[in-house]
Amino acid sequence: MIIAEGKPIKEILAMIDDYDKIIVAGCKGCVTVCSAGGQKEVEILSSALRLARKAQGKALDIKEVTLERQCDTEYLEPMREYADQYQAILSLACGAGIQFVAEKFRKQPVLPGVNTQFIGVTEEQGVWTERCQSCGNCLLHQTGGICPVTRCSKSLFNGPCGGSKAGKCEIDPQIDCGWQLIYERLKELGLLAKLEVVLPIKDWSTSRDGGPRKRIREDLKI
């Protein structure tokens, strides 16, 4: 899923300083699961914003809403009924959702309430870690199911570099060396021979480097 974290309240307060009627829009997708922008976070943030504005002596009217998803047109539609009565929409969806709201609701500014961080997993309750950089050309079959692009701090294809010490990365002793993980996994699988082969230079054109990406399935189009 996509992992995000709430923006600092002070940053949001500065964004909404000119408005006294806003929508705080959560999303029931990824940001609910990672506790950054679901219904609960909408309520907490709205409460904090109202308190802050009351303390400043400037009233704030908030419409709290949590949509099924913000990355699909049909789930944004319910907001049309009341959107025009508000001066801005503060979206707690991921960057994609925020932008999609901005695309579909053109009469008022759409503001980000979260920082979108990465594609990751829930390692344990309250702990999320990155797994994928969506490079568009998966090579996990060659690396024991561990992604060097994501898990190696230098995205090396032929690691580990000289900074790997006791299984940890040189940049932070809390971070596992991605290539140590790859090495151990392949050893476990009896596939260490895979590491003798030089992995070729990557074609980054399938990644963001090739420009904004688009996928079309003709058979699904209406």
Binding site: G163, S164, A166, C177, Y183
Partner: peptide, 18 residues
């Protein structure tokens, strides 16, 4: 360059071979 003292030790020579 090669760092013979980085980990995993047994893999350093494989990497040198690469």
């Amino acid at each position: 360059a090669e760092n013979p003292f980085a980990d995993p030790f047994e893999y350093r020579v494989i990497r040198l071979a690469k």
